[in-house]
Design a protein around this nucleic acid. Structure first.
Lengths: 236, 236
DNA sequence: ACCTGAACACCGTTCAAGT
DNA sequence: ACCTGAACACCGTTCAAGT
């Protein structure tokens, strides 16, 4: 019988045996809490109360860990998606697609490291095949030809999974004074950008360079594409 | 007078002095030839015929090198773009935008590592600001409000710079037999995907999972977005 | 002003060895 | 079957020292 006396021990009263599942689960936790860069084999082992070399009995190498945690997230997406799944309202493929993609996005927003890792995977996991098969199903249900559905998936790209990699990521350190100062310097060189920012500032004096609402922009882009596809579908 | 006798020396007859420019130039060459992973401070130094620590006199650290080579590529894009620049055919903003983006894409196709590096940069360089200011100019010339132009840039995302990160990158090792085998196994689980692939194979018996034409798909997605934006602009 | 040697704190990974 | 110690070949980076 294990002693239940001192609960204040390192992490767990009696180490659960190491396993691929426990390794990946812990890896996800580390990435969630401290970012993907601090997910090293040595940290991972330490968090599991084990030596780094022990991991290699359960996973081939670090690439396999990254493959694994990408899978974990995709599975989470597939579960979330199947939970939300509506009775597929016949005609309206667009709302089905929209809600499915935004559901995937919700999952990814809890794992900010995931997009980067997923993009860096070369071989596709059964999980993402499964997800894309589902999207294809929605397109087909909406009357898309296979050919158009195929183009559609490419047009969506990573948006299909709920994310876009932002090129401008102004951080939240965009100090008002600093950016306004920069703005004045740029006025000559970048007239259109400065004009745009001036209007934004006029409309909302509190906003700065970091004013963009990612969720709003994501949905704008998504709807733009879905509407365009619907037009191609109906030949409008 | 330096001896011009033996031209078969290591790299250059007399080392040009080290400089930030030479460091970045060489870094780009290494990334082009051997991929971004083999761009290490030590390799970089070796290629320059110098010790690794000498680099730190000209660049702050490795992040600064990555910032730097991203800049080099963006500058190359800006140059290419300004070379192609048409007299901005008044009404037709779409062709101006299209050719500009496809020009940027041509540059990126010569530096396959660049998209990844550019996405990983957090602070925006003057070069990309300059590029986006140009795009904004085209939108404005086409009669876009600042607000719509702003949404438009977000909707384009990385496409604005000429690339999309493909989620499926089937490599070119997609052996015919292997994929056909896999196809049969998947038939039950992934009906829509298998259906689509069956049709593709029927239309073009030589094609496999790696049949997608990246350029075609890029242009499809781009035109879909540009057409959508044009509709929003004219309120159609 | 520019470059270097030696050293540090980290990586991922192998391999023979322990239980 | 599962885990480990010692070691290897690599990272980026520092700091005091050379010219």
């Amino acid at each position: 019988m294990p002693d239940m006396a001192t609960q204040t021990e390192p992490s767990r009263e009696r180490r659960a045996p190491l396993s691929r599942e426990r390794v990946l689960e812990t890896a996800v936790a580390i990435a969630d809490e401290s970012g993907i860069d601090s997910l090293t084999m040595r940290h991972l082992a330490e968090a599991l109360g084990v030596e780094a070399m022990s991991l290699y009995y359960h996973v081939a190498n670090k690439e396999a860990v990254l493959d694994g945690i990408a899978d974990v997230i995709v599975d989470e997406i597939n579960q979330a998606v199947s939970r939300v799944d509506q009775p597929t309202a016949e005609d309206d493929w667009k709302v089905a697609m929209r809600t499915r993609i935004l559901t995937a996005r919700e999952v990814l927003l809890e794992h900010r490291w995931a997009p980067e890792v997923m993009e860096s995977r070369t071989n596709v996991s059964p999980g993402v095949i499964r997800y894309f098969d589902g999207l294809l199903g929605i397109f087909r249900g909406g009357g898309f030809s296979y050919d158009l559905a195929h183009h559609a998936l490419h047009a969506l790209g990573s948006r299909a999974l709920g994310f876009t990699q932002e090129l401008f990521e102004p951080e939240d350190d965009a100090g008002d004074e600093e950016s306004m100062e920069m703005l004045e310097q740029m006025a000559g060189q970048f007239p259109h950008l400065v004009g745009m920012l001036a209007e934004v500032v006029h409309d909302d004096p509190d906003s700065t360079l970091g004013w963009c609402d990612d969720q709003v922009e994501f949905e704008f882009g998504l709807d733009l594409i879905l509407d365009g596809l619907d037009r191609l579908r109906t030949g409008t």
